[in-house]
Simulated assay, not measured.
Amino acid sequence: MLTPADLRAHLLAVRLAGVVATTREASLLSYRLFAARDPRALIGIEPACSWGQRELLALMADRCGVSADPGCVFGQDVIDPDRTLAALDGYATRLALAARRRSPVLLGTGHPGRLLGFYAELADALSAAGCAVLTPAQGRCVDITTRFGLRTHNLHYHRGVGLVRAADPERSGCEPGAHTHSPLPVRTALAAAAEAGEPLPELVIGDHGWACGAGQLGFEVLALADVNDPAPFVGEAEGRVSVVVPLDDGVRGDHYLPLARYVLDRACLSH
């Protein structure tokens, strides 16, 4: 069983926390876009409050441990590993509650190349605990605006985790799925379930648009987020996302598996 000290050492060793690969420039650009209410940065959240760049920087310093100095504009960003650990503990507490209640859950990721394994471990454990792992709108088309224009994707589930794949076979080499910040996949999944009279989730677990889109619709959400994605943290601050774990979302996929083991151990859901 991983101790908090073990996991903290892992976070720092693989740069999930501490000095991370995300640049300060990328983070500040995202804060500017969010303050301007650019949909590329909102990713499904519609802020109730006015969030300027200074307010966002203060929020991210509080939730993630980035520098609160607006004069710090270059270099690598920093995530406080103790904030990551504290958020993972909150994440585990909510997973345990879902398992006790045998709540229906929906899992999805916009970063399947990195995070799919993490969520798949959670899906397996929740299913074993008696939770229904929902897979609505399997195969449904989702048109997503990208930097290359409007692209059609198909909604798929792998080991119970939602993701999108390019509908064009010539672009299907991005398996296991496409990277997207769009909230459209989770909106499509939830709308399909409602229209068919199928169960709706009591808990949504994901990142990017999956987390923000579900939170905006009033579903309880657990999220992972990098420091250049302020939207989930704003959602948490405004009460639409229950827990956000700050971490670098771009490291190797196997580096997230100890985090899955840690939260499942803490939630008493280990196999």
Rank of each mutant, 00 (worst) to 15 (best):
A98W: 00
R100V: 02
R101S: 01
R102V: 01
P104V: 00
P104K: 03
V105H: 03
L106D: 00
L107V: 13
G108H: 07
T109M: 09
H111E: 14
P112M: 07
P112R: 01
G113A: 06
L116M: 06
G117Y: 04
F118P: 00
F118A: 01
Y119E: 00
Y119K: 00
A120P: 02
D124M: 13
A125D: 01
A125S: 04
A128Q: 09
A128R: 05
A128H: 08
A129K: 00
V133Q: 00
P136K: 07
Q138T: 12
Q138N: 13
Q138F: 14
Q138V: 10
G139K: 02
C141D: 15
V142M: 04
D143H: 14
I144Q: 00
T145F: 13
T145P: 14
T145M: 12
F148P: 06
F148L: 14
F148T: 06
G149M: 01
L150R: 15
H153P: 05
H153M: 11
H156G: 09
H156K: 13
H158L: 15
H158I: 14
G160S: 03
V161Y: 09
V161A: 03
G162C: 09
V164K: 01
R165M: 14
A166N: 15
A166D: 15
A167W: 07
D168A: 10
P169C: 10
P169T: 13
S172V: 14
E175D: 13
E175N: 12
G177R: 07
A178P: 11
A178M: 13
A178H: 12
T180M: 08
P183I: 02
P183C: 06
L184N: 10
P185D: 03
V186D: 06
R187C: 13
A191W: 11
A191N: 13
A193T: 04
A193H: 11
A194M: 12
A194C: 12
E195Q: 13
G197M: 04
E198D: 12
E198V: 03
E198K: 06
P199V: 01
E202G: 10
E202W: 00
L203E: 01
W210H: 06
W210P: 01
C212W: 05
G213D: 09
A214S: 04
G215L: 10
L217H: 09
G218D: 11
F219E: 04
A225G: 08
D226N: 06
D226A: 11
V227Q: 08
